[in-house]
């Protein structure tokens, strides 16, 4: 198969993330398909309804370069679905596109680790180092407070570079240690992002749950994993952790419940989902 072919013809053509065209004037590959599915890997809109990238431009380039009986957008989570629907509802040019019924979630086939039975106030977060991944410094201070035994931030390149440090923080650059090592240092994953950005799925949350950790995040970010995370504001983090370490049973129960939720994102489920879409595309 050619890389960047001039033309792609198939019953089902899947384009993973339309934002790859955001700096291109056109899509130079001609697509002919029964069913074209564009996966909304990145949220189209940021909180407040602001465009996260030039969605109209990117989808327009795909639309112009493709001939298909059906053109669909596959959301990756419930939160992401709402955004796709909101965006399509506000744009008359893309009324011929539909939204798939099922979410094309991230496959989360992780080995599940048992939770500790003696949780301590050992907190941490793991992410890429971009500004969008971090809340304001005052919120970071609340999430990783002096009362904690340990605060480990992996992916803190930006904080390190710009001198945003605290004596009670352990700042590590992205990939400075392996995720397993990181998860070995913490019992609570406290994950808040910039209020102006949101995860479309939140794979890092699934990773933490699989590693046997309790995850605390904001309500919207946690909506991809209903029942699997504790939702709170940064102000409530200290109290929430205090309650958990004083009630280890509750901690264990929470991790087990969360790991049960991860079954919804297994490769088996995804194969079923994909097969059904493929079958649908083959129907005359």
């Amino acid at each position: 198969m050619d890389w960047d072919p001039l033309s792609v013809s198939a019953d089902l053509v899947v384009l993973h993330n339309p934002s790859f065209l955001k700096f291109n004037a056109s899509l130079d590959t001609r697509i002919i398909a029964r069913h074209l599915v564009v996966v909304a890997h990145e949220n189209f809109l940021r909180p407040g309804g602001h465009e996260a990238f030039d969605v109209l431009g990117c989808l327009g380039r795909i639309d112009q370069a493709s001939v298909a009986l059906r053109k669909s957008i596959a959301p990756v989570s419930e939160h992401n679905r709402k955004i796709v629907e909101e965006w399509l509802a506000n744009d008359r040019l893309f009324r011929h596109w539909d939204v798939l019924d099922e979410n094309w979630f991230n496959i989360c086939d992780f080995d599940l680790k048992a939770p500790t039975r003696k949780p301590a106030d050992r907190r941490g977060r793991l992410s890429r180092p971009g500004f969008e991944k971090f809340p304001k410094t005052e919120d970071l201070d609340l999430c990783f407070s002096e009362v904690a035994e340990k605060n480990v931030i992996l992916g803190a390149d930006t904080l390190i570079y710009h001198g945003i440090r605290r004596p009670h923080w352990t700042l590590l650059k992205f990939a400075e240690i392996a995720p397993e090592q990181f998860f070995g240092m913490i019992d609570f994953m406290v994950y808040f992002t910039a209020p102006t950005w949101r995860e479309s799925f939140g794979r890092v949350i699934a990773e933490a749950i699989a590693a046997g950790k309790v995850v605390i995040c904001d309500r919207a970010t946690g909506s991809s994993f209903p029942g699997a995370v504790l939702t709170a504001s940064p102000k409530q983090v200290d109290q929430l952790i205090f309650e958990m370490i004083n009630n280890p049973e509750k901690y264990v129960k929470q991790v087990k419940r969360a790991q049960g939720v991860l079954a919804n994102f297994s490769s088996r489920r995804f194969i079923d989902l994909f097969s059904s879409t493929l079958q649908g595309a083959k129907k005359p």
Partner: peptide
Amino acid sequence: PSTQERISAKSKIAYASGYE
């Protein structure tokens, strides 16, 4: 120069400051 660059600038500032 383009819509995308306008959106990029807006997003970058929003991410860093927390304000739109």
